[in-house]
Design a protein around this nucleic acid. Sequence first.
DNA 1: CGCAGGATTTGCT
DNA 2: GCAAATCCTGCGG
Length: 184
Amino acid sequence: MAVARDLVGASLIADPGSPDEVRARIVEVEAYLGEDDPASHAHRGPTPRSSIMFGPPGHLYVYLSYGVHHCANVVCGADGTAAAVLLRAAVVDSGAVVVRARRATPAGDDGLLSGPGNLCRGLAITAADNGLDLCSGGRIRLERSPDVPVLSVGPRVGISRAADLPLRFWWTGHPAVSGRLPTP
DNA sequence: CGCAGGATTTGCT
DNA sequence: GCAAATCCTGCGG
């Protein structure tokens, strides 16, 4: 959860050095815990899919949602402890042309990576990137934020269990935050 | 081996 | 605002 706060404002670099390089800053995340969190895929202990969350931190955990969209997580617990942070939204810093070509959407630059599935599509993250090490210069790289953005905290979205836990963090007032705010 | 459900997005009623 | 699209994973028989 402390890691989740640090991830907001961090830079995500896809395909570094290639003509398709894309840089984006994370503006919205959700923390998922381990076996104590009913909403986490690690809730029922290690499985072939969730085992990556029990591994060492700094790795990418990608899964397919509703058979249509990919979602990217950053494993952040110690080796043996399941914990991950879902990347929900980011804002394109450079490479917007590449992202727009992949997204094919009329949305403005702020909305190109808004939403977990859209973020993965824009950065070309697929199941093939599952288990990737974000710290050792792989296809996807992560850089810590030089500054500390102002954060807001709220309940998680899109899940049916334990949705009331305040484990969602977003860049306060940022236009790229996905519009799904808690329904009052 | 078969079945039910899900950390979503998009388009139409 | 609601329902469909679509496939992999986990669980039961």
